[in-house]
Lab assay of single mutants.
Amino acid sequence: MSIQHFRVALIPFFAAFCLPVFAHPETLVKVKDAEDQLGARVGYIELDLNSGKILESFRPEERFPMMSTFKVLLCGAVLSRVDAGQEQLGRRIHYSQNDLVEYSPVTEKHLTDGMTVRELCSAAITMSDNTAANLLLTTIGGPKELTAFLHNMGDHVTRLDRWEPELNEAIPNDERDTTMPAAMATTLRKLLTGELLTLASRQQLIDWMEADKVAGPLLRSALPAGWFIADKSGAGERGSRGIIAALGPDGKPSRIVVIYTTGSQATMDERNRQIAEIGASLIKHW
């Protein structure tokens, strides 16, 4: 067993022997301040990774656009098919120029040779490549099948209805392509620590998230040296922004954090800054 596999296998073990965790309302004060600064709703939840206990939450059962955070769930569904012998990570998928959609920095470079399922998941999570996500959605049967996968996990809230990039439209009061912070946090925890996926697939999923290259201005910008984070960000229309993450000190994750916002007129930089400040408060009061 590799060191990384050992780390993920012992996530519940280490967490069980940690000192009790206590909620700190100071972080919620910052979440509410972010709402004021952005002029928009902000949803927040913080779960203990081992027990699933909610440590703090704000608007945990209000719907927010998922945006690209759905790509972690998508690759979880792909990995479940791999575990069941219905898919192979090494299978190569070929596609054409007509398949390319807006923001496809990886797939646009491989029109000639195609990409493997493993490479597509890596591109979808680490670079948020939209064509990679659409190609992977095709392998599982489309958005409705991802929703069905989530329902089978016990998540009857999260739903995907459309493809990239239309799913980022974020129309107010439109339930399409949305989740709730509580539902997303619980589902992410199941994917990373539950028995739904094999140990190898859980490790692969967290490795992809740990290698995320496009979430630097968010929670990662607030992390002290030595902290662990595996995350996936999302951005959408109407001032929408979000991030889902597993993080913790001492090089291992111990909490799940989900943050979503929508309806702001603020710039992307300002949305990023507010999420980073929430992260800084979380870490300060850990």
Rank of each mutant, 00 (worst) to 15 (best):
R220M: 05
F70H: 09
G39W: 10
S128E: 01
L146D: 01
A148Q: 05
P249E: 06
Q88R: 14
L205E: 02
L167S: 07
A185M: 03
V106Y: 14
M268P: 14
Q37C: 09
A185L: 02
D161L: 03
R241N: 10
T126H: 10
V117C: 14
D99M: 13
E35P: 01
V106T: 09
I206V: 10
E46D: 10
T198Q: 03
W227C: 02
G90E: 12
E35W: 02
H151G: 05
K213G: 04
L219V: 05
I278Y: 01
N50D: 11
P105N: 08
E102K: 04
V258A: 04
R241T: 10
L218S: 03
N272W: 01
M67D: 13
K284N: 07
K71R: 00
L79I: 11
R273S: 10
L218M: 12
G154D: 11
R162M: 06
H24Y: 09
L196K: 08
L47A: 11
D174S: 09
Q203P: 02
T193G: 12
D212P: 07
M115W: 02
D174W: 03
N152S: 11
E108D: 10
Q37D: 06
A215E: 15
W286N: 03
G263A: 08
T107Y: 02
D33G: 04
M66G: 13
R159N: 14
R159P: 02
T126M: 06
E108P: 14
S201L: 15
L282I: 14
V257Q: 00
L247K: 00
A280F: 11
I54L: 12
A185I: 08
C75D: 02
G242Y: 01
F228A: 11
L49M: 13
L100C: 07
R63S: 06
T262R: 06
F70Y: 15
M209H: 00
D161W: 03
T262P: 02
Q265P: 10
A34E: 03
C75H: 01
A182I: 08
L199G: 07
N173H: 10
M209S: 02
A230G: 13
K213Q: 04
T187Y: 05
K30H: 04
K190E: 13
G85K: 08
T198G: 08
V42P: 00
I283A: 12
Q265D: 14
I243L: 13
W208N: 09
G248W: 02
L223M: 15
S96L: 12
W286C: 01
V72T: 08
L196R: 13
I54R: 13
A148H: 06
T198K: 10
F149C: 13
V82D: 06
I244N: 02
W163P: 06
N50R: 11
E46S: 07
M66S: 12
I275T: 14
R159A: 10
N272R: 05
W163Q: 11
D113P: 04
S264D: 04
A276C: 05
A266Y: 03
E169A: 11
P65A: 11
M66I: 09
A132L: 00
A200W: 10
L150H: 07
S281W: 09
L120S: 04
A280N: 09
T267K: 10
Y95I: 04
I93F: 15
I171W: 15
M115F: 07
L137P: 01
D250A: 04
E61K: 15
I54S: 12
S122R: 10
W227P: 01
L188D: 00
T267R: 06
A266G: 06
K53A: 13
Y260A: 03
P60L: 13
T116N: 11
A225F: 05
D161Y: 05
Q203R: 04
I93Q: 14
K232C: 01
D99G: 06
F228Q: 15
G141V: 10
D99R: 09
S264Y: 10
T139G: 09
Y44V: 06
S233N: 01
P253F: 03
G154H: 05
G142R: 07
G43L: 00
D207C: 08
S201I: 06
Q88I: 12
E46K: 10
Q86T: 15
Y95R: 02
Q203V: 05
R220P: 03
G141F: 09
K213S: 03
K232S: 00
E119N: 11
Q86G: 08
A84D: 14
A230K: 00
K232R: 05
M115Q: 11
L219W: 13
M209L: 11
E56R: 06
N98A: 07
E277W: 06
S264G: 11
S68L: 00
A230T: 02
E270I: 03
A77M: 12
S281E: 10
G114L: 08
L146A: 06
R202F: 14
R92V: 12
L218A: 06
S240Q: 12
N130C: 06
R41K: 12
A235I: 09
V257F: 15
K213E: 03
Q97P: 08
L223E: 02
H94E: 04
T112K: 14
G279N: 04
D36Q: 15
T187S: 10
S221L: 04
M66Y: 12
N173P: 06
V42H: 03
K190D: 10
D250R: 04
W163V: 07
S221W: 07
I278W: 02
L192H: 12
Q97T: 07
E145V: 05
L73P: 10
H94Q: 06
L79W: 01
N130G: 09
P25I: 15
L89D: 04
W227K: 00
I125G: 01
L218K: 02
G39T: 09
G263D: 09
W163I: 09
D129F: 00
L38H: 07
V257H: 02
G76A: 07
A182C: 12
L223T: 13
N134C: 05
N134Q: 12
Q274A: 08
A182R: 11
G194Y: 15
V31E: 00
L247I: 12
D231F: 05
T138F: 14
L199F: 15
K30E: 04
D48K: 04
R59T: 02
L74N: 02
T147W: 05
T116A: 05
D174P: 02
H151R: 06
I278S: 00
T131E: 03
G248C: 02
E108H: 13
V117K: 02
E26N: 15
D212F: 03
L100G: 07
T131F: 08
Y95N: 02
E26H: 15
Q274N: 11
A215N: 15
R81D: 08
Q204A: 04
V106G: 15
M209F: 03
L150W: 09
G85Y: 11
E195C: 14
E195S: 13
E270G: 03
A185Y: 01
L136Y: 00
W163E: 07
E26G: 15
E169M: 10
A40W: 04
E164R: 00
A245H: 00
S122H: 06
L223G: 13
N173A: 06
E195L: 03
A211I: 13
G279W: 10
R63M: 08
Q274G: 07
L205Q: 02
G234S: 07
V29E: 14
R91K: 13
G114N: 12
V82G: 06
G43H: 00
G52N: 13
T131P: 07
D129G: 01
A123F: 03
R255S: 08
V106F: 14
E35R: 13
M127C: 06
L199W: 10
N98G: 08
A211S: 11
I275S: 01
E119L: 02
A245S: 07
T267E: 07
A133K: 01
R255E: 04
A266W: 04
E87F: 10
P249W: 07
Q86R: 09
G39Y: 15
S57R: 10
G234W: 00
I229W: 02
K30R: 08
A200R: 12
T193I: 13
R162N: 14
T158P: 01
I54N: 14
G43A: 07
T147C: 04
R59Q: 12
E169N: 06
A132F: 01
H285L: 10
A276G: 11
G234M: 14
S254R: 12
G43C: 03
S254L: 07
P60F: 08
A123C: 09
